[in-house]
């Protein structure tokens, strides 16, 4: 009895028949209105700054995960794992803050600031040092895989001379846009005697992509938020939104296929006053591909 009711309910939702006016109920205008209201609700919910901070919005990239993934890549090439360095992480954080404060996205600052001065400023005397940057990624896995797919960034990650690593994942406003910056800094401490001779001798930064010029205007800067190694977001918001969007698109595409299949079988395709299922399907397919593209940011 119950099974039959559930079956009828799903038939009503997906399969065009008389009681849903020969169109899957999930594609009716009233249901589309509910989806639109839900999308608007999410838009306002996640726009609310206090809630965003509580949930750790845009900080789904964690230092812990980046550290694990980087060392995993090194282990794949039989290289020793790097030690987590608080000093290098502090330098990475200072670098990220500098980029937000001076509104630039580059290895070198507008006033000639170098990555090495951030490392030296925190008292890390190095023999070797390197820097990788990433911007606006949604997930830690994508950041590391993008670095590994780039020759110069991969060389940095797999450089056998490095012994230490530090990270900063900082949220702020860059060029007027909400931005998540990831700074990865590598180093090998110099012995006291070597330090003075070798500083600025072995400095490596990945420069596969040209620097993107940003406006020099000093727009009002939102306070940058650091995602510490220990800090874990209460809710994985980006992951939830990504999965929700993907799931929603998948259900809508499935409904369009089912509706089209049964309507064509019943020969009622031309009798209905509806949009074209095939066109909707193509549109949704492109947006699904687009969703994967926007989840990947840019590296430098």
């Amino acid at each position: 009895m119950n099974f039959s009711r559930i079956k009828n309910f799903f038939h009503h939702l997906f399969i065009p028949k008389e009681d849903n006016h020969f169109r899957s109920r999930l594609l009716h205008l009233d249901f589309l209105t509910y989806y639109l209201l839900l999308a608007l609700f999410f838009t306002f919910l996640f726009k609310s700054t206090p809630l965003s901070n509580i949930l750790g919005y845009a900080t789904d990239i964690t230092i812990q995960k980046l550290y694990e993934l980087t060392n995993k890549e090194r282990q794949n090439y039989n290289l020793p794992p790097l030690n987590y360095s608080e000093k290098l992480s502090k330098a990475a954080y200072q670098k990220a803050l500098d980029m937000f404060n001076k509104n630039y996205w580059a290895h070198f600052g507008p006033n000639g600031e170098t990555p090495w001065q951030f490392i030296l400023n925190v008292g890390y005397e190095y023999e070797y040092a390197g820097e990788n940057l990433a911007k606006n990624f949604l997930f830690s896995e994508n950041v590391v895989s993008a670095w590994m797919n780039s020759k110069t960034h991969r060389e940095n990650i797999l450089k056998k001379e490095y012994t230490d690593i530090g990270f900063a994942v900082v949220n702020g406003t860059l060029n007027g846009e909400p931005t998540t910056l990831v700074v990865q800094m590598f180093g090998k401490p110099a012995s006291i005697n070597l330090a003075k001779n070798l500083v600025e001798k072995h400095q490596v930064f990945a420069t596969e992509k040209k620097e993107i010029p940003l406006s020099k205007s000093s727009s009002s800067l939102a306070p940058a938020v650091l995602a510490n190694k220990e800090q874990k977001p209460v809710v994985n918001v980006n992951k939830f939104l990504f999965d929700f969007n993907l799931g929603f698109i998948a259900i809508l595409m499935l409904t369009l296929i089912v509706d089209f299949y049964f309507a064509s079988k019943m020969g009622i395709l031309k009798l209905r006053f509806t949009g074209k299922n095939l066109a909707h399907f193509i549109f949704l397919g492109f947006l699904a591909i687009g969703l994967f593209i926007i989840s990947r940011g840019v590296i430098l």
């Binding site: 594609l27 999308a39 996640f46 939104l241 949704l284």
Partner: peptide
């Protein structure tokens, strides 16, 4: 020659639903 107000609304709705959903990720 198959235009109806409901059809226009259907395209507008589907377009805007996806616009808002993806906007949350692009411009939080």
């Amino acid at each position: 020659d198959h235009l109806h107000f409901k059809i226009v609304l259907e395209y507008v709705m589907i377009g805007f639903i996806l616009l808002f959903l993806l906007k949350i990720i692009i411009l939080p």
